[in-house]
Design a protein around this nucleic acid. Structure first.
Lengths: 221, 221
DNA sequence: CACGGAAATTATCAAATGATAAATTATCAC
DNA sequence: GTGATAATTTATCATTTGATAATTTCCGTG
């Protein structure tokens, strides 16, 4: 309350306030915003932004850092590896946590907008999925299916693609909601459970025969 | 050759040339391009653009029309309904054609950029999928599974979500390639076949039990 | 080959924009 | 309360930008 009445904020508070506001603002308006639009919407003068941020790009960089950092929970991979739970249950819990983290207007819109502008910005985040989470999911389902994880570059690639397809469908719900502005169901739990069921059942069923989809090159090796 | 040497093109030719060039240009630079950048890159003067396009927004609108129109083949739905082929084969053929149509840098990047700017632009295209193609796919797999298509709003929604998840994974390959700039496999055929196999097998297997994922409300009705 | 009309460029504007410097106002310590 | 200090605003610039008007260049036709 004392803070709210003040006109002159402490530098640290003002910087944080601008940053938080800018995140929402940029999520709505996209990267074409002007510094004046932002300052007007926040109710401060435009040059004030330059007291806290070196320039427009510096502000954007801070926005990216703030949005992307601290959304990734390293505990997720441990959860996926915890064999005291069924693989279906692990996937449901992981995806529930994951969708909760990313189904956020600011996260989705800034993620896509920044990737469109410069793919480097999102590279680190995507690498985490691609190199750690996806192989783990595939391997755990292989255990469930009772077959050895297929090896070889072609088989690895196919496995990754299968998991990509599954996993991306959850991110894509965010795209549908916050970019296409489609309605998506309020309660995601049944959808997560149904998709997990379809995916695990299908992959357990077909994993023994996935080799048939590989090019011949690897067969004789 | 006669056309190539001319400095003063026919109005219709010049308009087409600018439009084609602008599509590539906007796909790369995004919507933040300036009219001068565009004109310079094409090698004409900036005011020339205003001879052919009323203003910047008019050019953008023409770009959207050109990119979105004529990419949708109405024959796709007929193909999906053709029971002389197995459902797996139909899906493989449909998805092969579909991915070929949309795995295009200009299409993907302009689609996402325009949706980010104004979701109205992509609404018609998405409606086609949501209202026609998706229910059809689900119904055909129900036939394959030998069960009646579940009915009721909750069941419809769940069915749509399941197909959304599957179908979007192909569009998402375009996002990965042209927005994230990730490498994706050159040969998509094995991936399409494997994903179709996993999906159909999983859905056939689990469709009889999908009711368990519905909220209780519908059970007693 | 000249001449008329269409196509294109040059010149130019007013508004918008990122950024800086100078002046002003609030807040705190004493 | 008063003055020092930090926070904020006002004033201002140089560029950039979308758009228009005036001028010039090309090209087919008689």
């Amino acid at each position: 309350m004392a803070k709210a009445a003040r006109k002159y904020l402490d530098a640290a508070d003002r910087e944080q306030q601008i940053l938080e506001f800018a995140i929402d603002f940029v999520a709505q308006r996209g990267l074409r915003f002007t510094t004046r639009e932002l300052a007007d919407a926040l109710g401060v003068s435009q040059p004030l932004l330059y007291r806290y941020f070196k320039n427009r790009d510096d502000l954007l960089q801070k926005i990216y850092d703030e949005v992307y950092l601290k959304r990734w929970d390293p505990g997720w991979n441990e959860l996926l590896a915890d064999r005291s739970l069924s693989i279906r249950e692990r996937l449901v819990r992981y995806l529930t946590a994951y969708t909760e983290a990313i189904l956020d207007e600011r996260w989705i819109r800034i993620f896509i907008a920044s990737a469109l502008e410069d793919p480097q910005i999102t590279k680190k985040y995507l690498g985490l999925l691609h190199e750690t989470t996806f192989p783990l999911i595939f391997a755990e389902i292989a255990v469930e299916a009772g077959v050895p994880v297929p090896s070889g570059p072609q088989a690895d690639e196919l496995a990754l693609e299968i998991v990509w397809g599954f996993h991306s469908s959850f991110f894509y719900m965010g795209v549908r909601k916050y970019i296409y502005r489609n309605k998506i169901p309020d309660d995601l739990d049944p959808i997560i459970r149904a998709r997990v069921e379809v995916f695990v059942a299908g992959l357990v069923e077909s994993m023994p025969h996935l080799g048939q989809f590989l090019p011949e090159t690897e067969v004789g090796r």
